[in-house]
Amino acid sequence: MINEKSIIDQVLQGNDEAFAELVKAYEDKVYNLCLRMCSDREDARDLAQEAFVKAWRGLRFYKQESAFSTWLFRLTTNVCIDYLRQKKRRSAVSLTTDDELLQLDVPDPSPTPEEQVQQTMARQTVASAMEQLEEEFRTVLTLRVVEELSYEEIAEILDLKVGTVKSRLARAREKIKKILLKSGNDLFDHSVKKNREEDAL
């Protein structure tokens, strides 16, 4: 665990190089937040870069009463939302088409070809379902499930009440469940059926 406060102090005193340690500590989290928000690797890289540069510029404005990560995620979320709104203004066309789906790598190194295809399809279906969620639901689900933030942290990042975070998460899960079912996700059906069978036994 890096000593964030000490690094932030160093950066504020003009040591820009120290900022690299903060980038390294948070790059995966910031990048994944951007990736889930915009669904495109190249855009996610650019947005993550923009978020870090803004964080560096605005570090003096970081009031240390909240965690640095909360401040950084708030800033990153705003960068992503700004981008999505600009993109929406530029094009009224739906964001999702089959051609635009991410080509997702399979994390498991040794599946059979058949399993590999199945895993890739499942991942693509989930990624596509996330992309189809409205921005407000996608944001809250990403902050909770990908970034594993508490309701309180999410409330601070999104300027919401904790109760709203809780209800919005439930609605987001209900929505993504419907999208997945609609997409005819075999694994999803299988998972539910399997558990039903287990319950019956």
Partner: peptide, 16 residues
């Protein structure tokens, strides 16, 4: 179903 979806979303994570 919620558990499945959560796991699916979490599994989408990648290295920067």
């Amino acid at each position: 179903a919620f558990e499945y979806a959560d796991q699916g979303i979490a599994d989408l994570q990648e290295k920067a």
